[in-house]
Every structure is written in structure tokens, then in C-alpha cells.
Simulated assay, not measured.
Amino acid sequence: MSLFSKIFNNDRSEKDGLIQDQRESLIDLLVLAMYVDNKLSLSEDAVLKAQIDQFSWEGPMSVDDYVNSAIARIRDMRSSEHFVNELLKSINERLGDYDVRLTAAGICERLLSADGKETSEKEFLNKVKTELQIT
């Protein structure tokens, strides 16, 4: 049983226990994390795809379209510290529950470590944990 299934075994969603806004927030977080070191790796992409496969997607656009939209938005704006801070603030608000934020930070850490942690990735993970209020 997946980590999401164990933690979120409740009535919000039959499969993953998340609401759509939380799913979208997690994708935003993972895409942002992928771009932190300015290089994309197949191992990071595999973590993102594995996570997406666990979602009970309910959005108005397909999950692939949402990911592509997030990539375009984040790729173009990631160099702006203000944009990154605002996006992390939005992600925190949309994730909501502490357990969801804790799980999101763990998945983000797994993605960042998929290709070996660099200083920029460690700093970003610390920033994520601070913004998500994970101690």
C-alpha cells in the first residue's frame, strides 16, 4: 500500500485521500523542486511520474496538461525569488493539513535526492520545510 493510501485513508477521495487542489499543489512543488539545480534528470522525472500514478485526478484538464502547464509556468519564473516564495506560500495554503504537508515534504525530499543532493537542493528542501511548517 502506498504512503498516500496509508496516511490518507479517509472519505475525501476513494483512492488517494486528497482533494484536487492538494494534488495540483504537490505537482507544483515537485516541478519546482526539479528545476532547483537547473538540470532535469530521468530519476527525478520517475519520482514525479510515480507520484502522479497514485493520484485520483479530478481536474478540468488532464494531469499531463496540468504538469505541462506547471512546467511552463515554473521554468519561466523560477529565477525570481519573489515568484518562488509566493508559489511556496500558495502550495502551503493549498496543501492544508499538517499530515498532507509532511507527506509532500517527504516526497519532495525523495525527488531531490533521486539524482544526488547538491547544495542548492538541500537549501531548497530546508526552505520547503520552513514554508510548510515542517519541523
Rank of each mutant, 00 (worst) to 15 (best):
E93W: 07
C108D: 09
N92W: 01
R94E: 10
G96W: 01
A105P: 00
E86L: 05
L111E: 01
N85I: 02
E86D: 06
P60N: 11
I91Q: 04
W57F: 08
R110V: 13
A104K: 00
S62A: 11
L102P: 07
D65A: 14
R101P: 03
S62H: 05
E109I: 01
R101M: 04
R78K: 14
R94T: 03
C108E: 04
D115G: 13
S113W: 01
A105I: 03
M77Y: 02
R110Q: 06
Y66E: 13
M77E: 09
L102T: 10
I74N: 05
E58W: 07
R110H: 10
S90A: 14
D76M: 09
T103V: 11
F83T: 04
H82L: 10
C108R: 03
E81L: 10
L95M: 00
I107V: 09
P60I: 12
N85Y: 02
I107L: 07
K89Y: 10
D97E: 13
I107C: 06
V67E: 15
S62L: 07
C108F: 09
L111D: 06
Y98I: 08
Y66P: 01
N92A: 11
M77T: 10
N92T: 08
D65W: 11
R75Q: 12
Y98M: 07
S90P: 00
S80P: 01
L102H: 14
P60Y: 12
W57L: 01
A70K: 13
S69T: 11
K89L: 15
N92I: 02
D65V: 10
L95Q: 05
L95F: 04
E109G: 10
S79N: 10
Y66F: 12
F83S: 09
I71L: 11
R101Y: 01
N68G: 13
A104Y: 00
E58P: 02
F83K: 10
S69V: 06
L87P: 00
R78T: 04
N68K: 15
G59H: 09
L87A: 08
S80K: 10
F83A: 08
E93F: 04
S90K: 14
I91T: 03
E86Q: 15
R75C: 03
A105Q: 11
W57P: 01
R73K: 15
V100P: 00
V63D: 15
G59S: 07
F83L: 02
V100W: 04
S79E: 11
S79M: 03
M61Y: 10
E86I: 08
A104N: 00
E86H: 13
N85V: 01
F83P: 00
E86G: 02
R101K: 12
E58Q: 15
I71R: 12
D97P: 02
L95C: 01
I74Q: 09
N85A: 13
G59V: 05
D76K: 12
D76A: 14
R73T: 13
V100T: 00
V84D: 03
V63W: 11
D65T: 14
R94A: 06
D99A: 08
A72D: 11
N92E: 15
G96A: 06
G96F: 04
R73F: 05
T103C: 05
S69D: 13
V84P: 02
R78D: 06
H82E: 15
I107F: 08
E58V: 15
T103K: 09
I91N: 07
A70D: 07
S80Y: 07
S113D: 06
R75P: 02
I74L: 12
E86C: 02
S62E: 09
S79C: 06
R94L: 00
V67K: 15
F83I: 01
G96K: 07
E93Q: 12
